[in-house]
Amino acid sequence: MDSGGGEGYAVDDYESLMSTTDVELLKTAWRNEKAAPEILKFDSNLVQRSRQLIQFMEETVDEFNKNGVDPLTVSLYQMDLDRTMFLLRSYLRTRLQKIEKYVFHIRKTAELWNRLSLKEQQFAEGCAIDLKDHLEQSVLSKLPEQYQSHLRQSAASEDDDMVPEPQLDAYVVCRSKRYLGAFQLDDGGEEPVNIEADDLYALPYKSIKPLVESGQIDLV
């Protein structure tokens, strides 16, 4: 790309940064998060690196602007920056929306709770309090005493039977980067599925969950 002699080194730097696959990784994380019914593990390193990358891209664009580089070039860089920004924002946003939706479930399930970043945990804490207060004020406080829990239907319930949970048996579309061989869906009685590289499959999320978590398979 022609960008004038003066900032050749910046371009080199930029190219080398772009060639690391952080943006691609972010895209994958984002896609998985979008498609999975439950919340996935927060990739704090990746987010950290993406933010550094974004900052660097911003600086580059600013520098280009200052040095009067061809506007078309600048706008291409700007567009790339905007796209990366979108990915990051949308990734964080999708997670927050899941937290909002399943806040009680996430809060009482240690496994899910540990998947959140520290700040997300704070957010979830706040969310849960807000929602609980709201439910209590509008409904629960007006009901008879044995029926006032926001997690249980009544004092007679043995465990929390009124917490919305994500539907883990929902079907998701997924694709593997490499051949994984025969894979047994856990419903039993069914033929194992042969997972080929780069083929699309629609499978219940529950059965491929371990593959998603270990990064062997990507959701689309």
Binding site: R51, L88, R89, L92, R93, L96, K119, E120, Q122, F123, G126, C127, D130, L131, D133, H134
Partner: peptide, 17 residues
């Protein structure tokens, strides 16, 4: 309240979502 919770998260991560 919820908007506040969201705002404080965005302030924490320093990113407008």
């Amino acid at each position: 309240k919820h908007a506040n919770t969201l705002q404080s998260y965005m302030a924490e991560v320093d990113l407008h979502l």
